[in-house]
Design a protein around this nucleic acid. Structure first.
Lengths: 204, 204
DNA sequence: AACTAATTAGACTACCTAGTCCATTTTAGG
DNA sequence: CCTAAAATGGACTAGGTAGTCTAATTAGTT
């Protein structure tokens, strides 16, 4: 019955990829539908046939990016001593948040937080909130084993993640002239893990 | 000799104030020169007579904001015990970075960091860098008095400030649905000061 | 009062924007 | 192979943009 020729899924993906790239790179206002079409090697009409409007496309693009580029697999973490575990997590966390993609989506979500609160909410839940929850679970385990003494695991989790993010991430965010070297970043992360462990060391 | 009627300094200030307000509120691309002129109750031509172009006006606006709204007077801090001192600084620091003005200038500098690196550099130096330096000086004093045991005061200063900023600030940045209450913020800040102090407690 | 530069409103250029329309071509399912 | 829908490109509307220009007005300095 349905002689419907279905819309080309490949084209949809091309459009979405181009939109994501351009929106995160240049922002919403500075990115035109014509440019997205050209970049996706597709006609403008096709863009409008897949996504009804610029706003719709923007939402779809950011939502997709929130799903795909804010990942940190805690299952991979092997639980040994707190120091080794936290250091490993810290390094992977830092690598993730300083990836081009994560930086780009962070930037635009923060900037458009007033205009598109549902998108920044989405980002916050997919990113910081989810990670904090996983981190808190981990800290509870250490606490239960008596390896750390943590009263409020959620607070502690956010403190840990913000410590690790800290200075080095901010310099990248602001694209400052003097960026920290890999060695300095390792030192900073290591120093933050140490601070955290001393601050939450079990009382004995 | 100069029969020049000098340009009205009041108008210049009006223009700058309007530009700052609109740029920080809506961003560079979405703010038009016509709107700035109207908002400043001035003709468009006058805007161009005071500031040659949109870019020039943008720079002037952000530069002015960096000077005026990222201030934290450390001289007011009375040095007593570390806990009281750091808690007082933490609270004032947090209040400053969550002010509308500081949030707005932070947002736009981060967003335009790629397009206007000199502006984000300016912000970074006027804000985070200056504060970190002052904080580090303070920590050195505590260290010298044997009240804290800090190896790298610069690291420690950034760690302290990022701990305090942490979760609560991020929720504001992303305009999330559930904001922390004043009480929760106080708890979080207090908990972060405690963590910092335990982590850098002198060894005895 | 006279001179001169600042300021004004508004027209104007040249260009970009989101979104629509339409005639044509491509393509995939039946 | 046929047909219906997808995709195309280009014209088009209606509106916004930065920046220039002009002629008239205002106001400070001498």
């Amino acid at each position: 019955m349905t002689k419907n020729r279905s819309k080309n899924e490949t084209k949809r993906k091309q459009i979405l990829a181009s939109a994501t790239h351009l929106f995160t790179e240049q922002g919403y206002a500075s990115t035109s539908m014509a440019l997205i079409a050209k970049h996706a090697d597709v006609s403008k009409q096709t863009v409008y046939s897949h996504f009804g409007s610029k706003e719709e496309l923007f939402s779809a693009a950011i939502e997709q990016k929130c799903d795909s580029s804010i990942l940190l697999d805690f299952a991979q973490v092997t639980l040994t001593d707190p120091h080794a575990t936290l250091l490993a997590i810290a390094k992977r966390f830092f690598a993730m948040i300083t990836s081009k993609e994560a930086l780009a989506v962070h930037k635009i979500c923060a900037f458009e937080a007033k205009s598109y609160p549902q998108l920044s909410e989405l980002f916050y839940q997919a990113g910081p909130e989810r990670l904090t929850a996983e981190m808190a679970k981990l800290l509870v385990e250490f606490n239960d084993k008596g390896l750390l003494s943590i009263e409020n695991p959620h607070f502690a989790a956010t403190q840990f993640l913000h410590l690790v993010k800290g200075e080095a991430w901010m310099r990248i965010e602001f694209n400052t002239q003097y960026q920290l070297s890999e060695q300095q970043i390792d030192q900073y992360i290591s120093s933050s893990v140490d601070l955290f462990l001393r601050g939450y060391a079990p009382i004995n």
